[in-house]
Nucleic acid binder design. Structure first.
Lengths: 181, 181
DNA sequence: GCTTGCTATGCAACGAGTTGCATAGGAGGA
DNA sequence: TCCTCCTATGCAACTCGTTGCATAGCAAGC
C-alpha cells in the first residue's frame, strides 16, 4: 500500500514521467520496492485525480511526448503524514530459499540442475553489485562532502551493496552445501 | 505464484494443518516467503482438490480438531517439475528504505520520529537474530554431522542469520546518518 | 524496405494478497 | 462469572500486482 509513497519520494527527488519512474524502479529504487510500469501508470493516474501530483505534457524531439509529473502540496502533506507512521516489516519472496530446501526432495539430476541455476543467479547478483559500485563512484565521488538528501540516498545505496555482498557470500555457502550432498 | 511450492516443501519436511503451516510461515519459512493464514487455507483447498495433497481429520483433546495435510504423489511430481525451472528474482518491499530517502523531505520533528521508529525496528530485528541463534543451537547442535535435508535447512537458516546481521549493521549506519542531519 | 529495438502510454483480464469478520471449544486469570 | 487469549477453520469483499496485448513514432542496421 506504499507504492504511492515510494513514487512521491522519487518524484520529490526528481520529477519525471511514468516511464522514467519505471526505469528508476528497475534500477535503484527497485532494490527495495519493485513495481512494473503498469502499476506505476495506474497509481500515477489515481494520484493525479486525487491532486497529489500534477502532470505536464512535455514535447520531445526524436521521441514520443511524455507526461512529466511533479509532487503537489497535498502530495507532500500525504508523505509527511505517512513518514510519521510505523515502519512496516519488510515483505520478502525468496524463491531460491524455497528451492534450496526443496532440493532435499530432488534426485541427483534435479540437484545438478539447481546448482546450475544458483550459479546463474549468483552471476546476476555479481553484476548487480558491480553496477552499484560503479553507480556509487559516479554519483557519490566525495562521500565526505554530501548534501543531506544525498547522504540519505547514499546510505540506502550502501544498504543495497551490503545486501549484495551478504547474498554472494551466502550463495557460496549454498553451492558448497548443494555440491556436498 | 510459488506459495504452492513453499507449502509442498514445508509439508514434505513435516506434514501438518493449515494453522501449523501458518505458524511455520510466521517463524522460519516466513523469513523468505511471507503468507497469511487466509492465503494458506485457500491454497491448501485448491491443492487438495487438485490432488497434490491429502487431508486427514485429526481429533485432539483439549483443542479443536484439525485437518492434517500430507503431500501426495502428484504433489511431489509438481514440486520436482518446478525445481527444474528457473529461479525467479527475489521481490522485496522495504518500507524503511523508502522512509529513509523520504526523510530528506521531512522537518526536524519528522526526522526525530523516524529515528525512534528505526530504533524500534532495529530492536525487533535484534530479537529475530537472537531467536535464530537459539533455534540454530537447538535444532543443529552438531553441524558437522547433519543429514542432507538438515544441511539444507541449516544453510537456509544461516542465510537468515547473515541477513539479520547485515541489516543490523546497516541500521546503525542509517541511524548515524539520520542523527547527523 | 524490412526488421528490430527503444521511448512512451495504456487497456483488459486474471490471479495473488489483504482485511474484516465469524464461529467454536477450551484454558487461565480477575 | 466474565473476559481474554489461544487453537483451528473459513467466507466475503476488496485492493494490489502480473501478464498479455496494443499503439505509435523514431533510430539503426541489414
Amino acid at each position: 500500500m506504499a507504492l504511492e509513497h515510494a513514487i512521491l519520494v522519487s518524484l520529490l527527488e526528481q520529477p519525471g514521467s511514468g516511464y522514467e519512474l519505471a526505469r528508476r524502479f528497475e534500477r535503484s529504487i527497485g532494490r527495495f520496492w519493485t513495481a512494473t510500469h503498469q502499476q506505476i501508470y495506474r497509481v500515477l493516474k489515481r494520484m493525479e485525480s486525487d491532486g497529489w501530483v500534477t502532470a505536464e505534457e512535455v514535447g520531445q524531439d526524436g521521441r514520443p511526448d511524455k507526461r512529466s509529473y511533479s509532487v503537489a502540496a497535498s502530495g507532500r502533506a500525504v508523505l509527511t503524514e505517512w513518514l510519521r507512521g510505523a515502519v512496516q516489516p519488510e515483505a520478502v519472496r525468496h524463491d531460491l530459499a524455497v528451492r534450496v530446501r526443496g532440493a532435499a526432495f530432488a534426485d541427483a539430476a534435479g540437484r545438478a540442475a539447481l546448482i546450475a541455476e544458483v550459479e546463474r543467479y549468483r552471476a546476476g547478483h555479481e553484476e548487480t553489485l558491480a553496477r552499484y559500485l560503479v553507480g556509487e563512484k559516479r554519483d557519490f565521488p566525495d562521500v565526505s562532502a554530501l548534501e543531506p538528501g544525498d547522504r540519505l540516498q547514499h546510505v540506502v545505496l550502501q544498504g543495497g551493496i551490503a545486501y549484495e555482498r551478504m547474498l554472494l557470500a551466502w550463495l557460496d555457502d549454498v553451492l558448497i552445501t548443494l555440491r556436498s550432498l
